[in-house]
Design a protein around this nucleic acid. Structure first.
Lengths: 190, 190
DNA sequence: GTCTATACGCCGATAGAC
DNA sequence: GTCTATCGGCGTATAGAC
C-alpha cells in the first residue's frame, strides 16, 4: 500500500480528467471532487491551473520514459521494441475508443487554446519520436530512420483518431495487421 | 455581392471560431464580436449554443458535399478523385498546421464533452468514407474498398495530427509522396 | 429583428481561521 | 496542510423595450 502526497493525488486526478474531459473543460471543482479535498486547498500546492497542467505534462513525460524503459527490458530486437509501441493501441484500446490518444488530443487542444504549454505537450511526442528513430537506426535503416519513426507515429495517431470516431473494432484490427506487415517489410532481420 | 442573413453570418462566424478555438472555449461574446451583433440577439435565431453547433455541423456537411461534387467534376478517374481528397492537406495546409483537421478535432472534442452531437460530427467523416469507398470500388478494388477507404481517411488524419503537433513541412511533403506511391500500387490503371 | 438589462451559476483565484 | 468564506468576472440564457 503506497502512500501518495496530496500533490501527487492532485496530479493524478487532473491527469485523468484532462484526458477524459479535456483541460479547458475540467474545473478545479472536478479535480477537488476526484481527490477529496476542498478547492481552496489547491493553491497551497499549485499557484494556478496552468501550474497543474505543467505538473501533469511532466508526470506524463516521466510515465512515458518508464514505459519506454520497460520496452527496452522486455523486447530484444529493435523490431520487437517498435511492436511494443504499436501495442499501446491494443493495451489502451478501451480508453482510446472513448477519448482518443492522450498525447495527440492534448497537443491539439493546446494549439486551439494558443496555450503556452503547447510545446511541452509536443515534447511527449518527441520522446516517442527519438526513441523510435533510434530503433530504426539500430535495425539498419540509418538513412531514413527519422522518416520511418514519424511515419509510425503518424500511423498510430490516425488509427487512434478514426477508432475514436467510428469505434470500429474491425478497423483497428485491420490497421494493426497492416502496420505489422509494413514493419516486416522495413526490417528484414528477426 | 451576395447578401447573407444574420443567421447565416452567425453560422459562418461560429464555424470558424469552433474550428480555431474549440467549441467549448468559444463564447457567445466571441461569436457576437465576429458577426457584429449583440449577445441577446442570438436567441432570436437559435435557442441554445447546442443549436448553433447543430447548424454549424449541417453547414459543414453541405460544404463537404459541395467539395465532393467539385471533385467529381474536375477529375476523370477514381484515382484522380482520391488524389483530390488527399490534396485537402495541401490546400488547407496553413490552417491544419495551426488548428489540425476540422473534422477530426471536432469529433474528438465531442467525445470528450460526451456531447449529444458526437454522432453528427462523425457523420461528416462518413461522407468522405462512403465516397472514397465508391472510388476504390470503381477502380477494381471491390473486395476491400471499405478497408482502403478507411485507410486513406486514417492516413490523412494521422498526417494532419502530426503536422499540427510538429509543424514540419518536410514531414508533410514526405507523407504526401508516400500516399501517392501507395495509391499507385493499389490502383494500377490511369 | 435588434437592442439593453439582468438573472443566476460556475469559473479561477485570494484571504484568513484553524 | 486543510478548511470556509468570498471576490470579481464571465458563462449561457431570459425578459422585455424599441
Amino acid at each position: 500500500m503506497t502512500k501518495f502526497s496530496t500533490r501527487e493525488k492532485i496530479v493524478k486526478a487532473a491527469d485523468q480528467l484532462f484526458y477524459e474531459n479535456g483541460f479547458d473543460h475540467t474545473s478545479f471543482a472536478d479535480v477537488a471532487n476526484g481527490v477529496g479535498i476542498s478547492r481552496g486547498n489547491f493553491y497551497h500546492h499549485f499557484k494556478s491551473k496552468n501550474d497543474i497542467l505543467g505538473a501533469v505534462i511532466e508526470h506524463r513525460k516521466q510515465n512515458t520514459e518508464k514505459m519506454i524503459d520497460g520496452w527496452e527490458m522486455d523486447a530484444n530486437s529493435p523490431k520487437d521494441r517498435i511492436k511494443c509501441y504499436i501495442n499501446i493501441l491494443v493495451k489502451n484500446q478501451t480508453l482510446i475508443k472513448e477519448f482518443g490518444c492522450p498525447v495527440g488530443t492534448l497537443t491539439n487542444e493546446m494549439a486551439k487554446l494558443k496555450h503556452a504549454s503547447a510545446k511541452d505537450a509536443t515534447a511527449i511526442f518527441s520522446l516517442f519520436k527519438s526513441w523510435l528513430t533510434k530503433q530504426f537506426a539500430e535495425s539498419g535503416c540509418q538513412e531514413n530512420a527519422d522518416k520511418l519513426a514519424m511515419h509510425v507515429l503518424s500511423w498510430s495517431q490516425g488509427t487512434a483518431t478514426m477508432y475514436n470516431a467510428f469505434k470500429d473494432d474491425d478497423f483497428l484490427r485491420n490497421e494493426l495487421m497492416q502496420i505489422e506487415d509494413w514493419l516486416d517489410k522495413q526490417i528484414k532481420e528477426n
